[in-house]
Simulated scan of single mutants.
Amino acid sequence: MLTFVAAFFLTILTPGPGVLTTAGVGSGFGFRPGLTFLSGLWFGTNLVAVAVVTGLAAVVLADEVLRTVLIFVSAGYLLYLALRIARSGSKISFIEKQAAPGFLGGLMLQLINPKAYVVNSAFFFGYPFHFDSLWTEILLKFLITNIIWIPVHLIWLTMGVTLHRLNLSPRAMTVINSGMAVAMLAVVALTTWSALDTIGA
C-alpha cells in the first residue's frame, strides 16, 4: 500500500493538463471560479476512474480507429493550449476567455485527457494490496487517490491565484508563460506516446 501511495503521489506532482489548467484558471479568473472548474475536474477524474475500473473505457476504446482518433484529438487540444501559453505575451494565464471555463470545462478536460486513462489503468490494476476482496482494494485506492489529488490541485490553484495577485513584470510573466508552454509540450508528447503504447495502437 505504501508503494501505491508513494507512486501515485509522485505521479500526481508531475505537471499535467489538469494542474496546469487549474493554475491558469486561478491566475485568470480568481479563486472562486477556479474552485468551480476544479470541482468539474475532480468529478471528471473520478468518472474516468470508474470507467477504467468497470471496463467501460476498454469497451469504448476497443475500436482501433476510434481510440486513435481520440488520442490525437486530445493531443491536438493539449498542443493548442501549449501554443496559447507561448503566445499569451505578458499575461500569466493562458486562458483568455471572457468567462471562466466552469464545471463543464473541468469535466471535459479530464474526459479527453489521455494521461487520466493511463494513470488510472496503471494504478487501479497495478500495485496490488493482496487483499482477499478486490473491491475492498479498489475502494481504498479511490479513497487514497482522492486524499492526495484534492490538496495537490488546490495548491496549484492557489499558486495561480497568487501569481495573479503579485502583478509581476511583463518579462517575468513571459518567462512563466514560456515555462508553462514547454511543460505542456512535454505533456503532449508523453501522454500521446503512453496512450498509444498502452492500448497497442
Rank of each mutant, 00 (worst) to 15 (best):
T3S: 13
F8M: 06
L10I: 15
P15C: 05
G16S: 11
G16W: 10
P17R: 06
L20M: 14
T21D: 11
T22I: 09
G26E: 02
S27G: 00
F29E: 05
G30A: 04
F31K: 07
F31C: 05
F31Q: 00
P33V: 03
L35N: 01
T36A: 07
T36I: 13
T36N: 05
F37T: 06
W42Q: 14
F43L: 14
G44Y: 10
T45Y: 07
V48W: 05
A51W: 09
A51M: 14
V53E: 07
G55E: 01
L56Q: 08
L56G: 07
V59N: 07
V60E: 06
A62N: 10
D63Q: 14
E64N: 14
V65F: 14
L66H: 07
S74G: 14
G76D: 07
L79A: 13
L79W: 13
A82F: 09
L83I: 15
R84M: 12
I85Y: 12
A86F: 11
K91D: 08
S93M: 03
S93I: 03
E96T: 15
A99E: 14
A100W: 09
P101W: 11
P101A: 08
L104C: 01
L111M: 15
N113W: 12
P114G: 11
P114R: 14
K115W: 14
Y117F: 15
V118C: 12
V119W: 04
S121T: 15
A122P: 03
F125D: 03
H130V: 09
H130N: 15
D132Q: 14
E137F: 11
L143R: 10
T145P: 04
I147S: 02
I150V: 13
P151R: 02
V152T: 01
V152L: 02
H153V: 04
I155R: 00
I155G: 02
L157Y: 00
T158M: 00
M159E: 01
T162Q: 02
L163I: 00
H164G: 10
L166R: 03
L168W: 03
P170F: 06
T174K: 13
V175I: 10
S178K: 08
S178A: 05
V182H: 00
V182L: 07
M184T: 03
M184Y: 01
M184N: 00
L185R: 09
A186Y: 12
V187L: 09
V188P: 06
L190E: 06
L190I: 08
S194L: 08
A195H: 04
I199W: 09
